[in-house]
Design a protein around this nucleic acid. Structure first.
Length: 644
DNA sequence: CCCATCATGGTTTTT
DNA sequence: CCATGATGGG
């Protein structure tokens, strides 16, 4: 492979960052300034300098981002494939798979997704006889626990705080809530299970509490690179600091003004205080924007000015002037949908491909009306829904089958699998589990026979079909995918046809999953990986339709991406900014503003902002809408009004 | 004990 | 309008 010509490929700002000397480095990369490119070249640079790829760690916000960067880097230099790359959760899982026993977990601990956690909490609430209208929902309790965990605050304080905020009636008190959540934590232990937050917390504990592990991995990772550093939370930042403690070769990249995950515990003060924690840190500024036309950047700059608490920055445009962004006043949601259809058609006439256009919005439900319209007019579109690939019922069902093959203690998987059978609900599955001695070695033929005996007549045939798909032992399994194929063939195909309207799509998903599994060495690897897959990650794997389609996305999921034309829906007060985040905290408005900044800076050529004047509520009443404050503060000369 | 049916209450963002 | 929880028949 020829030597890389860095001077040719990068501008001076990027070059300095990509070839930065050893030691801590903070790269402040404003939107569209080639942050990813710089990181890719930084990786290639390190490898070219002779750093062993196995000693480089690249932490990113999604697994896909890591994958893409490493692919691009491997086009530049050989040997990149040995690099450790992925999300924090991914890294934590990888470390814990090896070392969980030092924290009292087994090597085959299971990962609870949101669904599992909610189910567990719901059961605890019921067992404690606390269920009822008044008692907070499992999801609310879990987010409370999550906040406390990610910010490392005591749970009792968080619970008390919630009570003082929520003006709750006296049917129950903080101690009840606390009890439920402590029970939840205990039960996870008994189940040898971790939820997403546990992965992070326990990953950190490995490094914090076990000197030999901290030294070992600190030694191993000679270079650390962290992308989207502005969206790290306290646990993640500490994890980075501990790992970088030995060599101190830490490059963090981010933009404080694109921090949009504070509700998940992200703290942009991590990036703001980087210099204080690493006083010898070198700072690199990337301010030359290659993405957007100057007219779009001017709107972005107005948005920045409205905020405080940030590194001063100016986005310098390099592109030629083009069009002024458009504000469109619309009567209501249906006129908005109609307008978007028109606009997409007109953009296509201008020569844009569908895949170069995106429709962005604050919350998933803002796009419902448009989705209907797109389906009616048969415009192909891709949407990343709120439900993650792994959390869809059919994928979870099959994964539970695999989990039962993998572990004899996974009661959640066992129950779910049995509950697929007719006439079996939570009570029956629990009863059977208990009768089996709260353990189920599925390879024990005698045990399977016992299960069959305990089932009601209507469920026996289905169980027989499930059994037919079970291997006699994992040693005989040549390809992991054949487990899924067999299960689908003997049982799930028929089940899906009876249960799901869209069974064709779902069975296709499972076929895709079976193919995807071939690259894994063990069920444990696969199950850990798929549980941590994000929506966007999964899409690459199972959507794979190269066909042209329009992209619909929440702004959060649009992070890091770009399109030639961007259409933004529902720029009205209460929806964007969302009234909830304004109410929640002082800093709510700031974060909504940053979110608007992220939105604007996704656009390369054209930016179209939709401002409906009224909104139909679920009870069919129509209420008027005020334009979003982010719209009214844009000076009129920077935008053109479009009348419909 | 399971499951279909009805009522009621409430919608942000996600690894 | 959808998802969740309560209710009552099988």
């Amino acid at each position: 492979m020829p030597k890389i010509d860095f001077e040719q490929a990068l501008n001076a700002e990027q070059l300095a960052a990509a070839t930065a000397p050893d030691g801590p480095a903070l790269v402040l990369a404003a939107a569209g300034t080639g942050k990813t490119r710089t990181l890719v070249y930084r990786v290639a640079y390190l490898v070219e300098q002779g750093i062993d790829p196995g000693r480089i760690l690249l932490l990113t916000f999604t697994n896909r981002a890591a994958q893409e960067m490493l692919e691009r880097a491997s086009d530049l230099v050989a040997g990149v494939s040995g690099i450790w790359g992925g999300t924090f959760h991914h890294l934590a899982n990888r470390l814990l798979r090896r070392h969980a026993p030092v924290l009292g977990y087994g090597n085959t601990y299971t990962i609870l997704d949101r669904d599992d956690s909610v189910t567990l909490v719901r059961r605890i609430i019921q067992d404690a006889k606390l269920q009822g209208r008044e008692f907070p929902r499992p999801a609310v309790l879990l987010s409370l626990l999550g906040q406390a965990t990610n910010k490392e605050q005591p749970l009792a304080g968080a619970v008390d705080g919630w009570f003082s905020d929520a003006a709750v009636t006296a049917a129950f008190g903080p101690e009840d809530v606390l009890k439920v959540l402590t029970t939840y934590t205990e039960q996870k232990r008994e189940l040898d299970a971790m939820d997403f937050d546990d992965l992070l917390l326990n990953g950190l504990r490995l490094l914090r509490e076990h000197d030999e592990l901290r030294e070992r991995y600190g030694e191993q990772f000679q270079h650390l690179l962290v992308d989207e550093y502005q969206d790290t939370n306290s646990l993640q930042a500490q994890c980075v600091d501990l790992l970088a403690g030995v060599h101190r070769n830490l490059t963090v990249v981010g933009d404080d003004f694109q921090s949009i995950y504070s509700w998940r515990g992200a703290d942009y003060r991590n990036i703001m205080s980087f210099q204080q924690r690493y006083t010898d840190a070198k700072i690199y500024l990337l301010e030359t924007n290659y993405r957007s036309v100057p007219e779009v950047l001017e709107v972005a700059n107005v948005c920045i000015e409205g905020s405080r608490n940030q590194f001063p920055k100016t986005l310098r445009a390099t592109r030629e002037p083009y069009k002024t962004p458009t504000i469109v006043r619309l009567r209501d949601g249906s006129e908005q949908s109609f307008f978007v259809m028109q606009q997409v058609a007109s953009l296509r006439r201008e020569g844009y491909k569908l895949s170069e256009i995106a429709v962005l919005y604050r919350a998933h439900f803002h796009a419902m009306e448009l989705q209907l319209q797109l389906s009616r007019d048969q415009v192909p579109y891709t949407i990343t829904s709120g439900v993650r690939f792994f959390e869809q019922a059919h994928v979870k069902d099959v994964c539970c089958f695999l989990r039962v093959l993998q572990s004899d203690e996974d009661v959640m998987a066992f129950s779910r699998l049995l509950e697929l059978l007719p006439g079996i609900g939570p009570k029956s599955s629990q009863r059977i589990w208990n009768k089996l001695g709260r353990k189920c070695d599925i390879y024990d033929l005698d045990l399977r026979h016992q299960i069959a005996e305990m089932l009601p007549a209507g469920a026996k045939a289905g169980w027989g079909n499930m059994e037919a798909a079970m291997p006699s032992g994992m040693s005989g399994v040549r390809f992991l995918g054949e487990l899924v194929d067999a299960f689908v063939q003997t049982f799930y195909h028929d089940f899906a046809v009876e249960t799901f309207e869209n069974h064709r799509n779902r069975l296709d998903d499972l076929q895709g999953m079976s193919n995807y599994m071939e690259r894994f060495e063990s069920l444990t690897d696969f199950l850990g990986d798929i549980a941590l897959l994000s929506n966007l990650d999964a899409e690459v794997e199972h959507l794979q339709e190269p066909g042209e389609s329009l992209r619909l996305s929440t702004i959060h999921q649009a992070k890091g991406l770009e399109w030639s034309a961007v259409i933004v829906l529902w720029l009205v007060d209460g929806m964007f900014p969302s009234s909830r985040s304004l109410a929640e905290s002082e800093e709510g408005e700031d974060e909504e503003r940053r979110l608007f900044y992220v939105t604007v800076t996704r656009a390369k050529d054209e930016l179209i902002l939709c401002v409906p004047e009224s909104r139909r509520m679920h009870d069919h009443s129509v209420i008027p809408c005020e334009p979003s404050r982010f719209i009214t503060e844009i000076p009129p000369e920077l935008v053109q009004e479009h009348m419909v």
